[in-house]
Amino acid sequence: TSIVNVSSSLNVRSSASTSSKVIGSLSGNTKVTIVGEEGAFYKIEYKGSHGYVAKEYI
Score class of each variant (00 low, 15 high):
Gly51Asp: 00
Phe41Thr: 01
Ser25Gly: 06
Ser25Lys: 14
Asn11Asp: 15
Val22Gln: 04
Glu56Ala: 11
Tyr46Lys: 00
Ser20His: 04
Gly39Ala: 05
Ser7Gly: 13
Gly51Thr: 01
Val12Gly: 00
Gly28Asn: 14
Phe41Gln: 01
Thr1Glu: 12
Asn5Trp: 10
Thr33Phe: 10
Glu37Gly: 04
Ser49Ala: 11
Ala40Asn: 13
Ile34Lys: 02
Ser20Arg: 02
Ile3Trp: 13
Val53Lys: 00
Tyr46Gly: 00
Tyr57Cys: 15
Val12Asp: 02
Thr1Gln: 12
Gly24Ala: 05
Ile44Leu: 02
Ala16Ile: 04
Lys21Thr: 12
Tyr52Glu: 00
Ser9Phe: 12
Lys21Phe: 08
Ser25Trp: 13
Ala54Gln: 14
Ser2Gln: 11
Ser8Glu: 12
Val12Ile: 08
Ile34Ser: 01
Val22Met: 05
Ser20Trp: 04
Val32His: 02
Tyr52Arg: 00
Glu56Arg: 11
Thr33Asp: 06
Val35Lys: 05
Ser9Met: 12
Tyr57Glu: 15
Gly28Lys: 14
Phe41Ala: 02
Glu45Gln: 09
Ile34Phe: 03
Lys55Phe: 03
Ser8Trp: 13
Lys31Asp: 07
Arg13Thr: 12
Glu56Ser: 08
Gly24Phe: 09
Val6Glu: 08
Ala16Glu: 02
Tyr52Asp: 00
Ala16Cys: 05
Tyr57Met: 10
Ser19Asn: 13
Val6Phe: 06
Thr18Lys: 12
Asn29Leu: 11
Arg13Ala: 05
Gly36Met: 04
Glu56Cys: 14
Ser2Glu: 07
Phe41Val: 01
Asn11Ser: 13
Ser27Asn: 11
Ser7Cys: 15
Ser19Gln: 11
Val4Ile: 11
Asn29Thr: 08
Ser7Pro: 10
Asn29Met: 11
Val12Asn: 00
Gly24Thr: 03
Ser8Ala: 12
Val12Thr: 01
Thr30Lys: 06
Val32Gly: 01
Tyr52Phe: 10
Thr1Asp: 12
Gly51His: 01
Gly36His: 04
Thr18Ala: 12
Arg13Lys: 06
Arg13Trp: 15
Asn29Tyr: 13
Ser14Asn: 10
Thr30Arg: 06
Ser7Met: 11
Ser27Leu: 12
Ser2Cys: 15
Ser7Asn: 12
Gly48Thr: 06
Lys31Ser: 11
Gly39Glu: 05
Ser17Gln: 07
Val4Arg: 05
Gly36Ala: 09
Ser14Tyr: 11
Glu45Cys: 12
Ala54Phe: 11
Gly51Pro: 00
Ile3Leu: 10
Gly28Met: 13
Ser15Leu: 07
Asn5Gln: 10
Asn29Lys: 09
Thr30Glu: 11
Tyr57Gln: 11
Tyr52Leu: 01
Ile23Ala: 02
Thr33Asn: 10
Lys43Trp: 04
Gly51Trp: 02
Val32Tyr: 06
Leu26Ala: 02
Gly24Trp: 05
Gly39Asp: 06
Thr33Pro: 03
Ile58Gln: 03
Asn5Asp: 09
Ser20Gly: 13
Val4Thr: 09
Thr1Pro: 12
Asn11Val: 15
Tyr46His: 04
Ile58Gly: 03
Ser25Leu: 13
Gly51Lys: 01
Leu10Val: 15
Asn5Leu: 14
Ser9Ile: 13
Asn29Ala: 08
Glu45Ile: 13
Gly28Cys: 13
Ser2Trp: 15
Thr33Gln: 08
Tyr42Val: 05
Val35Glu: 04
Ser20Ile: 01
Leu10Ser: 06
Lys31Trp: 13
Lys31Met: 13
Ser14Met: 13
Ala16Pro: 14
Ser15Glu: 15
Thr18Gln: 11
Val6Ala: 10
Thr1Asn: 12
Tyr42Leu: 05
His50Pro: 05
Asn29Gly: 15
Ile34Asp: 01
Gly36Ser: 07
Leu26Ile: 14
Ala40Gly: 13
Val53Ile: 13
Ile23Lys: 03
Gly24Tyr: 06
Ser17Gly: 06
Val35Asn: 03
Ser17Ala: 07
Tyr46Cys: 04
Asn29Ser: 09
Val32Thr: 03
Ala54Asn: 11
Thr18Met: 15
Ser49Phe: 08
Ser49Glu: 09
Tyr57Ala: 14
Thr18Ser: 13
Leu10Glu: 04
Val6His: 10
Ser17Arg: 05
Ser8His: 15
Val12Arg: 00
Glu37Thr: 07
Val53Pro: 01
Ala54Trp: 10
Thr33Ile: 12
Val32Arg: 00
Ala54Ile: 10
Ser9Pro: 13
Thr1Ile: 13
Thr33Ser: 08
Arg13Asp: 02
Ser17Thr: 09
Lys21Ser: 13
Tyr46Met: 03
His50Cys: 09
Thr18Phe: 15
Ser25Glu: 10
Val12Met: 03
Ser19Lys: 10
Glu37Pro: 02
Glu38Ile: 07
Glu45Lys: 09
Gly36Pro: 00
Ala54Cys: 15
His50Met: 08
Ser17Tyr: 08
Ala40Arg: 08
Leu26Thr: 03
Ile44Lys: 00
Ser14Cys: 13
Ser14Leu: 11
Ile44Val: 06
Glu56Leu: 08
Gly48His: 06
Gly24Leu: 05
Tyr57Pro: 05
Ser15Thr: 10
Glu45Thr: 09
Tyr46Pro: 00
Tyr42Met: 04
Lys55Ser: 05
Val4Leu: 10
Gly28Trp: 12
Val4Met: 09
Phe41Tyr: 08
Arg13Tyr: 15
Ile3Gln: 09
Gly39His: 05
Ser19Phe: 09
Ser14Phe: 12
Ile34Gln: 01
Ser27Glu: 14
Thr1Met: 12
Asn11Gln: 15
Val4Ala: 10
Ser19Tyr: 09
Ala40Ile: 09
Ile34Thr: 02
Leu26Phe: 05
Thr18Arg: 10
Asn11Trp: 15
Gly24Asp: 03
Tyr42Trp: 12
Val22Ile: 15
Glu45Pro: 04
Ser25Cys: 15
Ala54Asp: 10
Ala16Tyr: 03
Ala16Ser: 07
Ser7His: 12
Leu26Gly: 00
Val22His: 04
Lys43Val: 10
Tyr42Ile: 04
Val4Gly: 14
Glu45Phe: 09
Lys47Gly: 12
Glu38Leu: 06
Val53Cys: 02
Ser15Gln: 12
Ser49Gln: 10
Ile58His: 03
Glu38Gly: 03
Ala40Asp: 14
Leu10Phe: 11
Ile34Leu: 05
Ala16Gln: 02
Thr30Met: 11
Val12Leu: 03
